[in-house]
């Protein structure tokens, strides 16, 4: 299936050295790449964050959102910094959510996926909640704005 990353509109070649193994196989001989079912728990990966370079998560149907929670836990709780790939039924309209949960590579058969990825971060300039990207939610920006205004007034 075509693989996309930000920075390229065309699909990119997958790194053959990083073929993800299903969790059960990977546990027997941990490598740099693992593929999780969306029902897998993350505990066994806890001590391998340094080793792992690719974790592939699955969307059996695009309406099945379990992998979003897995992604957030990997990024925000386990501190995973390697590649996080969305696989399965991955469509362009999911991209704003996927990016915010920390996914950075995407397998998709959908026509127009590459150009949509290039534009995905421009769709929403405001977000309302913190997530696993570094975007500041509106509430925090408002707070900073209020404090800056208060300081400016105090300085006057």
């Amino acid at each position: 299936m075509p693989l996309y990353k930000e920075g390229s509109i065309a699909p990119i070649a997958a790194d053959d050295q990083l073929a993800p193994l299903p969790l059960a196989d990977w546990l027997k001989a941990p490598t740099q790449a693992v593929m999780l079912a969306n029902t897998d728990v993350l505990d066994p990966l806890k001590n391998h964050m340094g080793r792992l370079k690719l974790i592939a998560l699955q969307f059996p149907k695009y309406t099945d959102g379990r992998a979003y929670s897995q992604a957030r836990l990997l990024r925000s709780r386990l501190g995973y910094r390697g590649e996080l790939r969305a696989t399965g039924d991955v469509l362009r309209d999911q991209l704003p959510f996927l990016l915010r949960c920390g996914f950075d590579s995407f397998e998709s058969n959908q026509a127009g996926f590459g150009p949509a990825l290039a534009r995905a971060r421009t769709l929403f300039s405001v977000v309302y909640q913190s997530s696993s990207d570094d975007r500041a939610p509106a509430a925090l920006l408002r707070l900073k704005l209020r404090n800056a205004t208060a300081e400016a007034l105090a300085a006057d």
């Binding site: 099945d64 959510f97 929403f124 977000v127 309302y128 909640q129 939610p137």
Partner: peptide
């Protein structure tokens, strides 16, 4: 309302 609007993790419950 603000927190739940377009929540990236909880839009496919």
């Amino acid at each position: 309302r603000q927190w739940s609007t377009l929540h990236p993790e909880f839009s496919f419950l």
